[in-house]
């Protein structure tokens, strides 16, 4: 379903990497500033949908590389896995765990199950929206 518009196509081409990068940025800063897994995932999904409209289904699938259903499954697994460490430490399910590292160049980095969970949410949102959108667009053809 390509809409043969040069402007749209060029925009889709250049905007895609920017938007994807922006979505990761939104995801990572989400804990402190507006953003997070839901918003990041929606931005990324919207970026791919934009690309889909500017090019066609096949290139959209190609640029995505993986089947959106796999993203969905991986996201669910990450989200559930992030809940487990607490159980092994004898705490309530889903109790957040934080680990701090000091890495040269980057400085102090905080890793947490919360971040893993948010990445899971991010992937589930991308996966769901794209599963719906790509298949609908395909059915259209």
């Amino acid at each position: 379903m390509s809409m043969h518009s040069l402007i749209l196509r060029t925009a889709g081409h250049f905007l895609l990497p920017l938007l994807l990068l922006f979505s990761v940025f939104l995801l990572l800063r989400g804990h402190d500033e507006p953003g997070g897994g839901f918003i990041g995932g929606l931005v990324a999904a919207a970026a791919i949908v934009l690309y889909l409209f500017s090019m066609d289904i096949r290139s959209a699938r190609k640029v995505l590389r993986v089947d959106p259903r796999d993203l969905l499954g991986a996201g669910m697994v990450l989200a559930v896995v992030s809940a487990l460490p607490a159980a092994f430490l004898g705490q309530a399910f889903f109790t957040a765990q934080w680990w701090e590292f000091t890495v040269p160049v980057f400085g102090e980095i905080k890793l947490s199950t919360v971040l893993i969970f948010d990445i899971g949410v991010y992937l589930v949102v991308i996966g769901s929206v794209l599963t719906i959108m790509l298949n609908l667009a395909e059915a259209e053809d």
Binding site: D32, E33, G35, A96
Partner: peptide, 17 residues
């Protein structure tokens, strides 16, 4: 929660389930 975006902390930590 070590987070300054309270909505996000609610979503992914306090009410993660």
């Amino acid at each position: 929660g070590y987070g300054r975006n309270i909505v996000n902390v609610v979503l992914v930590d306090f009410r993660a389930l």
